[in-house]
């Protein structure tokens, strides 16, 4: 069973990568959004899922990445270098922020992380000289066809989504993931068994930021124009949490499954109920907490365990 999962994943990624062949611009835009959501949910999963720290800092990393990328590109730096710079910026910021707030627990940590995006939003709005303030910032337009651009940004997002998936897989199998799982289950006992909890929490927080910064920069290049309220939106912090919980927080594939289900719902349901967008999101969160605490993957796993048991006993 575990053998075929990587093969299925590789096939699924290959199929998604064929999306541009359909020549449907709407689907390609949706595919790019899906990849972006997957990056955010997978990244949140490291700190929120593995370590159990309810971070609302995703929007802060995203906006910081978007502005870093936009400002660097505006200064004439090549796009790819600007994207990389955005990753580094988000990482450094997360490490410093993590050292400041990761000693807080539960709600306190959540609130502290939530405030960060608000503070950055204020700074981006008032630092007109650098960010254009509330008027926003235009990015240089690429000298290639609209179709080529759509493909370029789709593949760019897909690439970091795959990187995010790989990161989750490596973390889950390695020492970092082990330490973070221990920390989630009992932080005091973790330090008592020799885990440097501060180090691993900061590492996890940094990992949860790096690719989000990249996604923000790619997003900025993709839409050509960013403004503070757009890239520091609190929804960018809330949605990844809902997606990860929907699919199964703390699992490698859960956030991807959650991102897919979420974007389908967003497109099919919410476009028709624009006025209760927030209400539906709220209901979904409440429903998740009460009915699906382990996400869709948790449900599948439970079904499978229930289905397998009689067989195993029969074989024994």
């Amino acid at each position: 069973m575990t053998r075929i999962i990587p093969i299925v994943v590789v096939i699924a990624v290959a199929l998604v990568a064929c999306l541009p062949l359909l020549g449907d611009n709407y689907l390609l835009r949706l595919g790019t959004m899906f990849a972006m959501y997957a990056v955010l949910a997978l990244s949140w999963n490291i700190i929120g899922g593995f370590a159990g720290y309810p971070s609302f800092a995703t929007a802060a990393f995203f906006g910081l990445g978007a502005y870093t990328g936009a400002i660097l590109q505006g200064a004439g730096i090549p796009m790819i270098v600007a994207w990389t710079g955005a990753c580094v910026m988000a990482l450094v910021f997360a490490v410093l922020l993590g050292m400041a707030i990761l000693h807080l627990k539960g709600h306190y940590f959540a609130i502290a992380s939530l405030v960060v995006a608000e503070v950055l939003l204020e700074i981006a709005t008032s630092w007109t000289g650098l960010t254009g303030g509330g008027m926003g910032l235009n990015l240089p337009v690429l000298q290639i066809s609209i179709e080529a651009q759509a493909r370029l940004f789709f593949y760019a997002m897909l690439t970091i989504a795959v990187l995010a998936l790989l990161m989750n897989w490596l973390v889950s199998r390695g020492k970092v993931g082990f330490a973070l799982r221990c920390i989630r289950q009992n932080e005091d006992a973790s330090s008592m068994v020799g885990i440097d909890t501060t180090f691993y929490k900061v590492t996890g927080f940094g990992l949860s930021a790096i690719l989000v910064g990249g996604a923000g920069a790619i997003y900025a290049s993709w839409v050509f124009y960013i403004e503070p309220a757009d890239v520091f939106s609190v929804l960018l912090s809330v949605k990844p949490i809902v997606m990860a919980m929907l699919g199964g927080a703390g699992t490698v594939l859960g956030p991807v499954v959650g991102a897919l289900v979420f974007i389908v719902m967003e497109e099919l349901v919410w476009r028709n109920f624009l006025s209760f967008h927030a209400a539906v999101l709220g209901l979904l969160i409440v429903g998740l907490i009460f009915f699906l605490p382990n996400g869709i993957l948790g449900l599948v796993r439970r079904r499978r365990a229930a289905g397998l048991k009689p067989e195993e006993e029969g074989a024994a």
Binding site: F178, R181, C182, Q185, N186, A189, M192, V193, G194, I195
Partner: peptide, 27 residues
């Protein structure tokens, strides 16, 4: 040390519980 009020990692297996100190404290 051992704790007066036991402090396992509740969702992990018994083996994983012991692997934590073997991995991190005993390196």
């Amino acid at each position: 040390r051992t704790y007066q009020v036991v402090q396992p990692f509740p969702e992990m297996t018994v083996l994983e519980n012991v692997m934590a100190p073997a991995t991190f404290a005993a390196r």
